[in-house]
């Protein structure tokens, strides 16, 4: 499964990338959501994990653009503590899940990613047969 990580904080990208690679995923990272759209056009990305508050583009807008490129892409959002109403808006627009920073239970996030990965495999199998 190919995962795209989007966050304007490089250390968070690096940290998550290490976690995911340790579990065997292929990971692309982007500091800028606009760059994420380029990667999305180039690579077959199955899951995008993105921050929702970034300087150049808000999460909701990024989600809309990503879905234009691949309507079936899975999106998990990450957020600080504030603004639950914005989280709800993202979920309503089709985000699969959300996680609050800092990830005090990293296992839960990894679990959600593993579930998504299984789901995607199941879909791919079904489409082949």
């Amino acid at each position: 499964m190919k995962i795209l990580l989007v966050d304007d904080e490089i250390e968070i990208l690096n940290m998550l990338k290490r976690h995911l690679e340790l579990d065997g995923y292929e990971v692309h990272t982007c500091l800028d959501p606009r760059e994420a759209l380029d990667v999305m056009g180039r690579e077959l990305i199955n899951l995008v994990i993105t921050d929702i508050r970034m300087p150049s583009m808000m999460g909701t807008e990024l989600m809309r653009e990503l879905k234009k490129i691949n309507p079936l892409v899975n999106i998990i959002i990450m957020t600080g503590y504030s603004n639950m109403s914005y989280v709800v808006e993202c979920l309503a627009q089709g985000a699969a899940d959300y996680f609050t920073k800092p990830f005090t239970h990293m296992e839960t996030l990894m679990e959600a990613i593993a579930q998504t990965s299984k789901k995607i495999e199941r879909w791919q199998q079904a489409m082949k047969s």
């Binding site: 904080e9 968070i12 940290m15 976690h19 340790l22 600080g80 920073k101 800092p102 990830f103 990293m106």
Partner: peptide
């Protein structure tokens, strides 16, 4: 919150490793 996120995340990674 941001720096604390990667401190916390890196620690869990270290624990795993």
């Amino acid at each position: 919150n941001n720096p604390n996120t990667f401190i916390r995340g890196n620690v869990s990674l270290l624990q795993k490793l």
